[in-house]
Amino acid sequence: MWPRKAREVMSANMLVLAIDTSGSGCATAVYDGAARVVLARAQEDIGRGHAERLMAFVDEALGASARRLEDIDRIAVTVGPGSFTGIRVGVAAARGLALALGKPAVGVTTLHAVAESARKADPGRPVLAVIDAKRDEVYAQSFDALGQPETAAEVLPVGLARERFSGFDGLVCGSATHLVAGSEMAGEASRKADMIDIAVVARLGAAADPASAKPKPLYLRGADAKPQAGFAVTRAVAG
């Protein structure tokens, strides 16, 4: 038996279940917020089929960490920007788990996760995260040296992003680095699809305010629907 005090400390530990289905990867992790360590993770670049496989990834991380779903204190999920459908797979699952477990779910943006990974590797400088949004656009957000957001997450044409951040004094990271900062800034790794570090998602999730709103997809783009005009026949003027 644990002495009473130690048991209380144990129960104050925050166990986070992290989920990322925002891109081609499917990843889950069980993170011990007090010890600041990932207890176990399950991840794979699956390309598609996140809706079918996510729950198995959840079970795999739980099993490997020898924790039960009921032990989880918080769910952290990536909310985008990324694949619209992928984001919804993760967010719907996270909100469903939160509802059933009676525990909070928090959202982590992919831009924040990408920036945080870079900041961890090269600390002490501001970070600009730029993710290739295709169609000659990038998702962009800058963070200060402490990792706090400096600008709002936004989608920008490549040219405008280059202009906007031309004097950026810091680290540029993410899959659109070569587009925004020029190829000399971009290592080989940054050209690849943004692999989100699930441990970073878990850590940012542990630090988030659980009273903040429920995780909600961050699309940054509209639904691409246009009202149909000119379809109807012309009407006679009344009177």
């Binding site: 809706a51 919804r88 719907a92 509802l99 059933a100």
Partner: peptide, 19 residues
């Protein structure tokens, strides 16, 4: 519509698993 079906089914899966 697949986008909507995914939302309902994932929510259902999560609740079923948790409960």
């Amino acid at each position: 519509l697949i986008g909507g079906l995914i939302v309902g089914l994932m929510t259902g899966k999560a609740i079923a698993r948790a409960m």
